Computed example of a mutant assay.
Amino acid sequence: MTDSGFDMGLDDPQRAGVYAIGDGDAGGLAAMARDAGLRVVRIDLGGCQDKRTLLARLATQLDFPAGTGRNWDALSENLRDLSWLPGRGYALLFEDAGPLREHAGTDFDTLLDVLQEASASWAEDDVPFWAFLALPDLGVADATQG
Rank of each mutant, 00 (worst) to 15 (best):
M1E: 12
M1G: 13
T2D: 13
D3N: 12
D3A: 14
D3W: 00
D3E: 09
D3I: 05
S4G: 05
G5I: 13
D7M: 10
L10K: 12
L10A: 01
P13V: 07
P13L: 09
Q14S: 01
R15P: 00
A16F: 01
Y19Q: 15
Y19W: 03
I21T: 07
D23H: 12
G24F: 10
A26T: 13
A26Q: 07
G28F: 01
G28N: 09
A31M: 09
M32F: 03
A33T: 09
A33D: 04
R34A: 15
A36T: 09
G37F: 06
G37S: 10
G37I: 11
R39E: 06
R39Y: 03
R39M: 10
V40A: 03
R42C: 10
I43D: 00
D44H: 01
G46T: 08
G47E: 09
Q49W: 06
Q49I: 15
Q49L: 11
K51P: 01
L54T: 04
L55Y: 05
L55Q: 08
A56K: 07
A56T: 02
R57V: 15
R57M: 04
L58R: 03
L58W: 03
A59L: 10
Q61P: 12
Q61V: 12
L62H: 02
D63Y: 07
P65I: 06
P65H: 10
A66C: 00
G67N: 09
G69T: 11
W72Y: 04
W72T: 14
W72N: 02
W72D: 13
W72K: 05
D73S: 15
S76P: 02
N78E: 04
L79H: 09
R80Y: 00
R80P: 07
D81L: 07
L82F: 14
S83A: 10
S83F: 01
L85E: 12
L85T: 10
P86S: 11
P86T: 07
G87T: 12
G87Y: 08
R88I: 00
G89P: 03
G89V: 04
L92N: 00
L92C: 05
L92V: 07
L93W: 12
F94V: 06
F94W: 15
E95S: 05
E95N: 02
E95W: 06
D96T: 09
A97C: 05
G98C: 03
H103M: 06
H103C: 11
H103L: 12
A104H: 03
G105H: 13
T106E: 13
D107C: 06
D107W: 03
F108A: 09
F108P: 13
L111V: 08
V114D: 06
V114W: 00
V114A: 14
L115F: 14
L115I: 02
L115W: 04
Q116F: 10
Q116N: 15
Q116V: 00
E117T: 11
E117K: 08
A118C: 00
S119H: 04
S119R: 03
A120Y: 13
W122G: 08
E124G: 13
E124N: 14
E124L: 10
D125P: 01
D126E: 15
V127M: 06
F129S: 11
F129V: 00
W130A: 01
A131N: 08
F132T: 00
A134I: 05
L135S: 03
D137R: 15
L138P: 00
L138F: 12
G139Q: 12
G139M: 01
G139L: 08
V140I: 12
A141S: 14
A141T: 11
D142W: 08
